[in-house]
Amino acid sequence: MFEARILQGSILKKVLESIKDLVTDANFECTANGFALQAMDSSHVSLVALMLRSTGFDHYRCDRDVTMGMNLLNMSKMLKCADNDDTITMKADDAGDVVTFMFENPKADKISDFQMKLMDIDTEHLGIPDTEYEATVKMSSNEFQRICRDLSSIGDTVTIAVTKDSVKFTTSGDIGEANITCRRTSDGDMKEEKVKTEEDGEKVHNTKSSEGQNVDIDLQEPVTLTFALRYLNSFCKATSLCENVRLQLSKELPVVVQYLIEDMGYVRFYLAPKIEE
């Protein structure tokens, strides 16, 4: 028996919206640890890894490990029938071939259940090695989305160059080229700044707001890599899950684009770089 209840159903809805265009069919692995997925897109260029830890659910029961193969477009169709403030419960029998999604509104006076047929999916599971990345960039997820969107109107690929002080995004296409540089926010800017006002005396003004870039860079080695914008734009569908996005880069390795899901886990996207022929 597998049973998982999430109070904030909108999280599950958002997760599905962020991955359903990248991956068609995927196996969800339900274990005592949580509800996880690892799947590649059909061209084997990108991979999504999702983890929703059991401790993040309001109720979680998994008597034995269950693999549930689902068509993500169909799953998304079902989850769209849940309101954002609904509680969502997923249920499956150990040997069953359906998963049940149950939606409950906050007043608990409307309860819906949707059954979806499961499928047998033959997939390769890839071992992702633990890697020390040469560069880690943390920035506003909205800004990252904006940059990827803006650059994709000029070119098809983006070159990301990380130095200790900045991260630079470059593209070029038939109509011209574009460079966007985000400077690392200095430590002083990230901290609370005290502002004196005549009326209130001392007032604390927090500058770490959604305005500005709030770019944090952890660098071992400067790194420059090129990626297809089409995939990055797809990853950015996860933007509403987290205020910040974390990019991890190393020479000639796939980039990791991570969105944390508060109190629950993460959705991570891996994208293979464009390399010299």
């Binding site: 590649m40 061209s43 084997h44 260029v45 990108s46 991979l47 390769e124 599971h125 890839l126 071992g127 992702i128 090695p129 690929t157 090129t226 297809a228 390795l253 796939p254 891996y270 293979a272 770089p273 464009k274 390399i275 010299e276 022929e277």
Partner: peptide, 14 residues
């Protein structure tokens, strides 16, 4: 020109 690499070369199949 740069070509798109595949993930298969980076991660081990299990």
């Amino acid at each position: 020109a740069k070509k798109q690499s595949s993930l298969a070369g980076f991660f081990e199949k299990r």
